[in-house]
């Protein structure tokens, strides 16, 4: 998915299939605008974190005891 692609009903349908999440057409349609906003913001953050300046940064899943 390109970051500037709008999220469509087909996008949601494809993601539901990938996740093995059976949602009716009404629910899938309802998710489109919300998912579009969330994915646009997530893509913006991804672009920031993918920058060369941040390549050495590790994900943090457990905090150090200090």
């Amino acid at each position: 998915m390109k970051s500037d692609d709008p999220v469509t009903k087909e996008t949601v349908e494809r993601l539901c299939a990938q996740a093995d999440l059976p949602l009716g057409p009404e629910r899938r349609t309802r998710l489109v605008p919300m998912l579009a906003g969330l994915i646009a913001a997530a893509n913006e953050l991804s672009r920031k974190m993918a920058a060369a300046a941040h390549q050495s940064i590790l994900p943090i899943l457990r905090f150090p005891e200090r």
Binding site: V12, L31, M34, L38, I39, A42, L45, L58, P59
Partner: peptide, 25 residues
């Protein structure tokens, strides 16, 4: 709705968000 949306992120979105936490910290 939020739980349905949570299944539709890419793994890279999640990992970049966790890397952002390191940067912020």
């Amino acid at each position: 709705t939020l739980l349905e949306l949570g299944e539709m992120y890419l793994a890279t979105h999640y990992i970049q968000a966790q890397r952002y936490r390191s940067l912020l910290r």
